[in-house]
Design a protein around this nucleic acid. Structure first.
Lengths: 132, 132
DNA sequence: CGGAATCCTGAACGATACTG
DNA sequence: CAGTATCGTTCAGGATTCCG
């Protein structure tokens, strides 16, 4: 708790528009990506190595072509994913994590661990809450 | 990278409806909360200690009454926040993190750290990407 | 003081069809 | 193969008003 305290205020202060700090909250900026439907799933799917467009689509059948394209472009824009085009026929396009993208795996992994450890208590709490 | 690999596949596999696993992805379940606009800000704001409703509203001026109420109820439902009513006049209601809520601060803190360390490179990447 | 109820808008997302 | 373009829907979230 004490450990998180400084980080908390950093986050909380930068969030508030009233803080007078310039620009949007950087934490929020990152969290929006994490919260969106496909970004982190894509990052984790690419963690095992580079993959091509249709391979990613096969690995994640639920995603639409549109969102796959769009999410990959956003990740590329943020510098988390690199896109490489091979001039073959037909063209091949490979996506891989950048070092920055790789560096996200560790902290994000902590969150995944927490989620897996905590989901039981969370669901139990929901059951209890909804019982009333 | 190797470290995140097992967690990644746990996440990725549970995500896919095609996996045949029962129920929704627990990681996604948690990530949706983390991604939503106010949950984590509220958790971090409560990290410094219990606070009452209007105190929270003053600390986070941007949030609407509706979302403050709704987010607090969701956090309570998930067992991350406890709600205590004092029978005074007028009534006072205090919100505090549960132990489960506190346990989220550490892994979430790693993400905040990553965001603060990485935002520079991310924004630089965006500038470069948008230049074309 | 601490909410609940209602209405409304924008943005995210999906489905479908077409292309170099 | 790897996208683009367009349309339609859903829904989180804000604004406003009212209540015990």
């Amino acid at each position: 708790m004490q450990q998180g305290q400084e980080l908390a205020s950093l986050y909380v202060e930068r969030w508030n528009a009233a803080s007078g700090l310039p620009g949007p909250c950087p934490v929020r900026d990152v969290l929006d990506k994490i919260g969106d439907k496909w970004s982190m799933l894509l990052v984790m799917t690419l963690a095992s190595g580079p993959k091509r467009f249709n391979r990613l689509h096969r690995d994640i059948p639920d995603i639409s072509q549109k969102m796959l394209t769009q999410t990959l472009r956003d990740l590329q824009r943020d510098g988390l994913v690199a896109r490489q085009v091979f001039d073959t026929k037909p063209p091949a396009v490979e996506y891989r994590l950048t070092p920055l993208g790789h560096s996200l795996i560790v902290p994000f992994g902590h969150l995944i661990e927490w989620a897996n450890e905590s989901i039981g208590r969370i669901e139990a709490s929901r059951l209890h809450f909804d019982a009333d």
